[in-house]
Nucleic acid binder design. Structure first.
Lengths: 203, 203
DNA sequence: CAACTAAAGTTAACGCTGTTAAGATTGCCT
DNA sequence: AGGCAATCTTAACAGCGTTAACTTTAGTTG
C-alpha cells in the first residue's frame, strides 16, 4: 500500500505539489527568464494539468509571491554567508557583497523580487510577509555593528536608507549591464563592492 | 481637399498615429498602471483597430521602448528644471530632487523605465537609445560641478556610480512605499532628498 | 471493512492577449 | 489618370490566466 510520497503512474495526489511548483517556477525563471514564466508552463514542467496549481495558489500573483518569499530566504542566506564570522566594517562589507553576488547569480529572480509592486505581495490581511524586510534588518544590524566615526550625529538615522538604496541601486545597475567593475578598474565584483562600501563609509 | 491632419470620419490615415499611440500608452500607464497597458487597449483608446499599431511598431516591446524614450526626455527635463540656475552642490541637489520628484509623480512610467531589461530597448543595431544615458550624464555633470572636498583622491571615479545608484535606489524605495520622508522626520521629499545629498557629500 | 467526505487532481471552456496574413482605402508622384 | 507605397481594416491563430464541473484518491468514521 502506497504512502504519502510522489509516484509516477499515479496522476492524482502529487505529494507536495505546492513546493514542486515553486521549484519549477524558479528553474524556469533562472533558465529562460520572466517572459517564459507562465502558469501553464509551470504546471507542465511539474507534470500536472494546467488547472492543478489553482488547488494550491489562488492566482499567479500568489504563486509569484511564494517564489519571492523563497528567493528572499536565499537572498538573506547569501548576505549572511558573506558576512559570517566578520565584525564591524567587514561585516557590513560582507552583507553588501553577498547582496550584489546574489543579484548577479540570480538576476531574473532578483529582478522579480525587486520590481514587484509591494501591493502585490500583501496577504489577505494586508500584511507584507515579514521575510521581505530581512534585507533591511540585516543592513541595520550591519550599520549598528560598524564604527561610523565620520558620520554626523544628527543624521545618523539616514545611514540605513542610504546604505540600502545604494547597494540596491548598485545591484540593479550591475545586472542591467549599465555599469561593470571593469569600468572602474576593478577585476571582480568583490573588489568593486568593497571599494564602494569603503567609499560610503568615508574611509 | 483635406490636408495631412487628423479627421474624425476618416478611418484611414490617422495623421500621426505613432505619436498618438505613445501618448495613449502613457495615459493608460499613469491612470491605470502597467497591467492595463495592452496593445489592443492602446489601439482602442486611439480610435484605431487592434492591428493598426503594427504599422508603426513591430511589437509591443518596440512601442514600450518608444514610451520609455518619451518618459526619459521628461525625466531629464524634470532633473534639469530643478537644477536650473543653481551652482555646485545646489545644482547636484537639484538634480537629485528632480529625479525623485519625477519618480513620485509618474511612478508607473518610472517603474517601466527603470525595470526594463536593457536588452529590450536595443535597436536593430544593438545600440541603446542614447537618451537613456542622459540621467547618468547629468549626474556626472553635477558631480563635476560640485566641490567634493572631502572625497579621497583615488576613488573619485566611484562618485558617479554611487550617486547614480543611490538616488535611483531612493526613488524606488519611495515609490514602493518602503520608506517615506516622514519616517526620518522630514516633512516633504525635498527636505529629505536634500539631507540625503548632504549626507552623501559628507557635509 | 464499507461508506462518506474533503482534498487534490482532471478536462473543457471563457474571454483576453500579442501577433500575423490578406485585403481595402488613401495620398502622393509621375 | 494610373500606379504605388503607406496605412488602415477584418479575421484568424496560438497561448495566456482563470473558472466550472467532474473524477479520483486518502483518510476518517460507524
Amino acid at each position: 500500500m502506497r504512502i504519502n510520497q510522489t509516484k509516477g503512474t499515479d496522476h492524482y495526489h502529487h505529494g507536495d505539489l505546492r513546493r514542486a511548483l515553486i521549484g519549477r517556477a524558479i528553474n524556469i525563471l533562472e533558465s529562460e527568464g520572466e517572459a517564459a514564466l507562465t502558469m501553464r508552463r509551470i504546471a507542465r514542467d511539474a507534470g500536472v494539468s494546467q488547472a492543478a496549481p489553482y488547488s494550491h495558489f489562488k492566482s499567479k500573483k500568489d504563486l509569484l509571491t511564494a517564489v519571492c518569499v523563497e528567493g528572499t530566504v536565499w537572498f538573506g542566506d547569501s548576505m549572511k554567508a558573506r558576512a559570517a564570522g566578520k565584525k564591524g566594517l567587514e561585516y557590513l562589507a560582507g552583507l553588501a557583497i553577498g547582496h550584489v553576488e546574489f543579484a548577479l547569480e540570480h538576476p531574473a529572480l532578483f529582478r522579480l523580487m525587486s520590481t514587484r509592486p509591494i501591493s502585490q505581495s500583501l496577504d489577505a490581511q494586508g500584511n507584507l510577509p515579514e521575510i521581505f524586510n530581512e534585507g533591511y534588518q540585516l543592513m541595520l544590524s550591519g550599520l549598528a555593528a560598524a564604527p561610523l566615526k565620520h558620520f554626523g550625529s544628527g543624521e545618523r538615522q539616514l545611514d540605513a536608507p542610504i546604505a540600502w538604496a545604494q547597494i540596491y541601486g548598485i545591484s540593479n545597475l550591475l545586472i542591467e549591464g549599465r555599469i561593470s567593475p571593469e569600468t572602474f578598474g576593478f577585476d571582480n565584483v568583490e573588489q568593486f563592492v568593497r571599494a564602494l562600501v569603503g567609499h560610503f563609509l568615508h574611509l
